[in-house]
Amino acid sequence: MTDTTHTDNSTTTLRKGYAPSRFGQLHYVECGDGEPVLLLHQTPRSWTEYLDVLPRVGAQHRAIAMDTLGYGASAKPEGPHSVERFADGVADLVDALGLDRFHLVGHHTGGVIAVEVAARFQDRVASLMLSATAFIDAERRSGGGHGRIDHVDPKPDGTHLLEMWNRRRGFYQPGEEAALTNYVIDALTVLDRVEEGHESLRRYAMETRLPRITARTLAVCAPRDHYSLPSLAKFAVALGCRTHVLSGGHAAAPEQVPEEFARTVLAWVGHHQGADVLGS
């Protein structure tokens, strides 16, 4: 099942579809043709985090942004979320779409899910780009995290909507209200389970999965994303991978610097073209 729409800033057509899975239907949006590049969003977001990235990557590849299991328009199964179950959803999608080999990009929570997917599909993940991905080890798991990040208690007068807005306001610059609005929309669709994506990361034994990754890997981060920035050095040690700091942006880098983000994806997917864009 698919339908199409056109982006305002590109002639590239976005194709929306649903794929079957063991959990129910999974929603995805794609554009372009050629080698597949699968993009995984942070929680509690949806594919719209990549709205401005898709047509740019799709100009050279088949760019696919899925709604993570439990988020956006994808199935919302009962039971606790986990990184492993999120990865099960990705596995079902790539099988349903017939992606024998694909490039993988994950942002924040999507990056942790991408670690698990790359560890499972060593022979199918052609390259891996981890964007603002938390390095989760015993120290991170025992640290208690940062408390509740997105949770708000619904109020009869609707003031919880402003509270939700203000919880994330510091991650956005003036003029980026449209991106912040998209965050609020996505978070409201999973308001009763809005913290579970973050909580699932705190239970994930990433260090046991990293040695299984064989795909060439790039770890990137926005300069103002101080929560994730320290993880670059840890991934460099654990994976022997390259790292790259974007010129701007915060936790919503795919929306804040979409052109640079897409350019970085294309450079890494192309690999032989990467030195000019990413530096030596």
Rank of each mutant, 00 (worst) to 15 (best):
R202V: 10
G106W: 07
C221Y: 01
P211Q: 00
V105I: 15
Y50T: 01
T159I: 09
I64L: 12
Y28D: 05
A251I: 13
T48V: 11
H6I: 13
R120D: 05
E35M: 06
S10A: 12
A126V: 13
R22Y: 03
H61D: 04
R216Y: 00
A238E: 06
Q173H: 13
T13C: 07
A275G: 03
L51N: 05
M129L: 15
Q60C: 08
L188P: 01
G110Y: 03
A252R: 02
N166C: 09
F261P: 00
A59T: 01
L218H: 04
T48A: 08
R15M: 02
T217F: 00
I64H: 03
G144F: 00
R148W: 08
E78V: 07
L51Q: 11
R203W: 04
L51S: 03
A134R: 11
S82I: 08
S21V: 11
V94G: 05
L51F: 10
Q122W: 01
H160M: 08
L188N: 08
G98M: 01
V117S: 04
S280T: 13
V37I: 12
A73L: 13
G248E: 14
G72E: 06
D92K: 11
G240W: 09
P223C: 07
F86Q: 08
A118H: 11
D88P: 05
A132E: 13
Y50E: 01
V57G: 04
L188Y: 12
L104V: 04
L130E: 03
E259L: 10
R167L: 15
A251T: 15
G175S: 11
A96I: 06
P44V: 15
L246C: 02
Q273I: 00
I185Q: 09
L232G: 07
Q25Y: 08
A251K: 09
Y172Q: 02
E196G: 01
L191P: 07
Y172S: 01
A178F: 14
P223F: 11
S74G: 08
P156Q: 07
A138S: 09
P174C: 10
G58Y: 03
L161Q: 05
D225I: 05
V257E: 10
R15E: 11
A119Q: 02
L51K: 10
R224T: 12
G197I: 06
A205S: 05
E116A: 14
T43C: 07
D52G: 00
L14K: 02
S231W: 01
E30Q: 14
C31L: 04
T7R: 08
G143I: 03
P230H: 14
D92P: 11
C221Q: 02
A233S: 12
E196Q: 15
G110A: 04
G110I: 02
G34L: 07
R202L: 15
H226I: 09
L201C: 15
G110R: 04
S46Q: 03
L246A: 11
P211D: 01
L99C: 03
E199G: 14
H244W: 10
V29A: 10
T12I: 07
P20A: 06
L201S: 10
L191Q: 12
D276F: 06
H244M: 02
I213P: 03
T181G: 06
E255L: 09
M1F: 11
